[in-house]
């Protein structure tokens, strides 16, 4: 709608929107600020907003006490590896459904999505039991597999919607030009779908990073990622706000940054393409 809007109207909009935006963002902002306070300042009454003695000591305490790096590493491995394996499995599957659709592809696609709807708690014990039997409890391998499986439907789905936008003609042209199936996927489809594959990667890293049900229930100490690391702060222990804030900031910072890059794809990924 290219229409002149009065400056006054725009100013009012801006003011309201910023106020609400800051209000919604405030808990995150407050957490980040608190992480730089001393414990005493963190609970001072009235609360101090910006004028306190900035310190980094909470970060070093958190790191020393709970070996933050190990949890971070676990999170990175689980999110990263599960997403990459997922994409490797999903690219051929999405190719099949997007470019060689059969009467069943639609059903298969919907069925895959429906597995995503399976409430985790309904299958908690069997998975728990299988993990014990296979010695996968509290292991990175086991958790990575589970997280890959719960996100696989979304990965297939997202890639499918991106592939759908690539004209079949171009793949057929490649075939006429003498490309084998492998060459067709490698030299033509993948380069054309790079933006889509990247968005899929990003969104699924975020989802895997924040996955809490299985990471809380299937890990103890060794393979626990950041979700579990934070959960260990759930029982109050004297003055700990600043430390909690520092730990929280470290846990969410990487993903907040990734998230800001992927906000557009988020809609497509999470609504299964029903809203574009």
């Amino acid at each position: 709608m290219a229409r002149a809007v009065t400056t006054q109207r725009k100013t009012i909009n801006t003011a309201i929107a910023w106020a609400i935006g800051l209000l919604i963002f405030f808990p995150i902002l407050w957490t980040v600020l608190t992480s730089f306070k001393t414990e005493a300042q963190a609970i001072s009454d009235p609360p101090v907003f910006l004028f306190f003695d900035w310190t980094l000591e909470n970060y070093s305490i958190v790191q020393e006490r709970s070996n933050y790096m190990r949890y971070l590493w676990n999170s990175v491995i689980i999110a990263g590896v599960s997403t990459i394996i997922g994409i490797i499995i999903a690219v051929p599957a999405a190719w099949s459904m997007a470019f060689v659709p059969s009467r069943r592809s639609k059903d298969i696609l919907l069925w895959m999505l429906s597995t995503k709807m399976l409430p985790a708690v309904g299958v908690l014990y069997p998975i728990y039991l299988l993990f014990i039997k296979m010695g996968l409890l509290d292991s990175l391998v086991g958790l990575t597999i589970v997280v890959m499986l719960i996100n696989l439907p979304i990965i297939v789905w997202m890639l499918y919607t991106y592939f759908k936008e690539i004209p079949v003609d171009i793949l057929e042209a490649a075939r006429m030009d003498g490309a084998t199936l492998r060459e067709e996927i490698l030299y033509v489809l993948t380069p054309m779908a790079i933006p889509g594959i990247a968005s899929t990667l990003l969104l699924n890293v975020i989802l895997a990073w924040n996955e809490a049900f299985w990471t809380l229930n299937l890990t103890a100490a060794k393979a626990a990622p950041l979700t579990a690391f934070i959960a260990s702060y759930s029982s109050p222990e004297g003055l700990f706000y600043a430390k909690l804030s520092a730990a929280s900031t470290m846990a969410i910072a990487p993903i907040l940054i990734l998230g800001w890059f992927s906000q557009k794809q988020l809609v497509r990924g999470l609504t299964f393409g029903a809203v574009k």
Binding site: P27, I28, I206, N210, T227, I230, S234, S245, L256
Partner: peptide
Amino acid sequence: IAPFFVMPTVSALV
């Protein structure tokens, strides 16, 4: 949009 990216355990504890 930011709160959506905060892991559930963090937002609950904060």
